[in-house]
Design a protein around this nucleic acid. Structure first.
Length: 504
RNA sequence: GGGUUGGUAGCUCAGUCGGUAGAGCAGUGGACUUUUAAUCCAUUGGUCGUGGGUUCGAGUCCCACCCGACCCA
């Protein structure tokens, strides 16, 4: 790092090198002309559209048609051969080659053009032709510099490969890596497909608060902030659940929200402190119907985003077309570990010993269901490759879910696992205000006892339930993780444009 | 937190047994009017992550630390 004299006073120190210095000098020359950074170039075509429309035409057809185009893009490759040159231009839609010759654009323009760099943004006007080797190309009648790139692009063949650099400088990653552009295009299509699916099924899209006076709807550590005018503590939301159910109380019987949640927890290949969830609630539904609905939504999403319901993830096939399996926690454990007997899995003492042997911490308060769940998470979860619903979660770890009519220890709840990852979590909602109040009280006791992730007692939510929540089913889908599956990304940072990073 | 692995030119990477710091791309100068990661000639550019240590001599060996990646908890 060194201070550069050309930096305006007071600007932050920038890293400079001889390449940037060279380009700054070229920018200074450009400013001398009085026409630097113009904004009067109105493009009329894009590379993708031109390729789509004209790549089917023969050389003779193109010559006869004399197709005029006006296109802008970034110079990605530049091959100068004396008095003529080829440049590869890139815009959002793709790439197209342009031919620039001195005799066509004039001596002065051509010598200026020769000084331009890869990364510069140019506008061209010209006609389409086909080169000797058959490539569809624009013969430039005009070429103008529209914006200067002061910083060199990464190596033209390999692009930016350093993971950290890709995340920190996503703009550079997007310029040079088509896979990255593809990933985020897929992400957009997935979100759009889910939104369409929900709206088509009669759901109302809503936006509920991101700043909560009481964080709720999940067990997680929240971020805290402070509102000055109100002089009150606020939390970034960890889940929208309690607000969405308040809306169902209000009569919005089918609602959904696609938005960010924030959890003040560690970073990992599957965890970013802010992440996107889709949550939906449907009155007069329950968890089995939700599973059918969610399954349909995921199938729809895969079709819309990828064009099919069967695809590859990390080198292994994933198939959304077959019905998703439904297993209880114990059934799932036994299927993947036939050595464990039903008697053992129903024995809290055996489970405690087994978990201790596996170095999984248990607490004395954990009941049979919680112990089974812990063993499931430790031994089985990661093996669930094909889409699998795990059903009937212990009520003790499901403080917002309705208890099963046949077994009050169990909640009418499911989680969906795909490729060993939790993708969705849903349940028949607990709509009994007195039961809910009792469960909040229990959570509050756990919090007082030091459990940082335990829930707060939310009196307003109880008040809402006291007005009457119809029987309702609700489900949350982790959008980032779904995108990881459909875009074949191993790391959540690959599907978040600007993932959380340590300060530079 | 533990293990594995990496940090060398703007980018992608070599660097052998410890002996003057390398290539390709990019840049600069030159040749070249149908190239395809254009080619050819010449050439600029380095606090080898940081700090110690061993040594006549360290990119290389040792120690500590910083920053990543992957795996595990």
């Amino acid at each position: 790092m060194k201070q550069d004299d050309s930096q305006p006073a007071g600007s932050p120190q920038q890293d400079e090198n001889h390449i940037i210095a060279e380009r700054r000098a070229k920018l200074a020359e450009w400013r001398q002309t009085g026409g630097a950074y113009p904004n009067d170039f109105a493009r009329e075509n894009t590379a993708g559209k031109i390729n789509e429309l004209y790549d089917v035409r023969t050389r003779d057809e193109l010559d006869a048609a004399c197709v005029e185009v006006k296109l802008a893009g970034r110079i990605m490759l530049k091959r100068v051969m004396g008095k003529a040159a080829f440049v590869t231009l890139q815009d959002l839609s793709g790439r197209i080659q342009a031919h620039v010759s001195r005799d066509r654009i004039g001596e002065e323009n051509y010598s200026a053009f020769k000084r331009w760099d890869m990364g510069d943004i140019v506008g061209v006007v010209g006609t389409l032709f086909r080169t000797r080797t058959g490539e569809l190309t624009i013969e430039c009648a005009q070429i103008r510099l529209l914006a200067k790139s002061l910083r060199p692009l990464p190596e033209k063949f390999h692009g930016l490969t350093d993971q950290e650099q890709k995340y920190r400088m996503r703009y550079v990653d997007l310029i040079t890596n088509e896979e990255s552009r593809f990933t985020f295009a897929v992400r957009s299509r997935i979100v759009q497909s889910i939104r369409n699916y929900m709206v088509r099924h009669g759901f109302l899209e809503v936006e509920t608060p991101m700043m909560h006076p009481i964080p709720g709807g999940a067990t997680a550590r929240p971020f805290q902030t402070h509102h000055h005018a109100l002089d009150m503590q606020l939390f970034l939301r960890i889940a929208p659940e309690l607000y969405l159910k308040r809306l169902v109380v209000g009569g919005f019987e089918k609602v959904f929200e696609i938005n960010r949640n924030f959890r003040n927890e560690g970073l990992s290949p599957r965890h970013n402190p802010e992440f996107t969830m889709m949550e939906f609630y449907e009155a007069y539904s329950e968890y089995r119907q939700l599973m059918d609905f969610t399954e349909g939504m995921l199938r729809h999403s895969a079709r819309e985003a990828l064009g099919g319901e069967v695809f590859e993830f990390q080198g292994r096939p994933l198939d959304f077309s077959k019905p998703f399996a439904r297993l209880t926690i114990v059934d799932a454990i036994r299927r993947s570990h036939p050595g464990f007997s039903s008697a053992q899995l129903a024995d809290a003492g055996w489970l405690r010993d087994k978990l201790a042997a596996l170095h999984v911490a248990t607490s004395p308060q954990m009941g049979l269901g919680a112990l089974q769940l812990a063993l499931f998470e430790e031994t089985t979860e990661a093996d669930l490759w094909d889409p699998t619903y795990i059903v009937d979660y212990p009520a003790e770890v499901s403080p917002l879910a309705r208890r099963s009519d046949t077994n009050p220890e169990v909640a009418e709840r499911f989680e969906l696992f795909i490729a060993g990852r939790e993708i969705a979590n849903g349940f028949s909602e607990l709509n009994d205000p007195e039961d809910q109040a009792a469960r909040f009280a229990e959570q509050a006791r756990a919090k007082d006892a030091g459990d940082e992730e335990a829930m707060y007692y939310d009196a307003d939510y109880i008040r809402a339930l006291e007005y009457g929540l119809p029987p309702t089913g609700g489900c949350g889908v982790g959008i980032d993780r779904l995108v990881m599956l459909l875009a074949d990304a191993a790391n959540i940072r690959d599907v978040i444009l600007f993932p959380q990073m340590r300060p530079e």
